Simulated scan of single mutants.
Amino acid sequence: MIEDFSGAVVGAAAYSAVGIVLMVLGYLVTDWLTPGKLGELIWTERNKNAAILLTSNVLGVGLIVVGAIWASEGGLLRGLASTFVFGVIGLAAMAFAFLILDWLTPGKLGDILTSEEHQPAVWVNAAMHLALGGVIAMALS
């Protein structure tokens, strides 16, 4: 019983670490795709558009991580590796979708999302992040 508990604790800590790494990568990708620095835009300038975009990215990545953990089979290391790989694939898909949406819509999404005035286009991008995270999560299960 103690071995089961300690194994569960190690697994939870390891999957948490992978999830945190993927969310940090998601932050960095989002920061890279948008003009300005997200940290400064959100915490210093209190930009709502940037906050909505980053929030949707974190939630989308979280959905992907949950789906990848749910679908993982085999031992802990194999599960962690598949979670990380599927998470990176999800981040790439989200970045690609951002670029496609930017190409299909008027204006530059990065500029719109970092605008000081509220922009409805940020909700479209946020919905895309969440929907794509859900699609990828379900594709894994």
Rank of each mutant, 00 (worst) to 15 (best):
M23W: 00
A126G: 13
G19F: 03
L109Y: 05
W32K: 14
N57Q: 14
S141E: 10
V10F: 05
L33M: 12
N47H: 01
M23F: 04
G60T: 01
V122E: 12
A8Y: 00
G74H: 02
V21Q: 03
G133T: 00
I20P: 03
V18T: 00
A71C: 10
A95D: 04
W103E: 08
F96G: 12
A131I: 09
A12L: 12
S72L: 07
E3M: 10
M138R: 15
W123C: 04
A68C: 13
A81C: 11
V88C: 06
A17Q: 02
A126S: 07
Y15C: 05
I136A: 06
D4T: 09
Y15D: 01
L59Y: 09
F98M: 14
T55K: 06
K108A: 09
G74W: 02
T30K: 11
S115N: 09
L33P: 07
V124G: 14
L38G: 07
A14L: 14
A68V: 06
K48Y: 04
T105L: 15
N49R: 08
F84M: 14
A97M: 15
W32Y: 15
M23N: 15
S82I: 10
S72A: 15
L140M: 11
G62F: 09
R46D: 12
G39V: 04
A127Y: 02
G75T: 02
M138F: 13
F5Q: 11
I64W: 03
K48N: 10
F84V: 06
T83P: 08
M94H: 03
P120W: 11
T55I: 05
K48M: 10
I2F: 13
E45Q: 12
F84D: 02
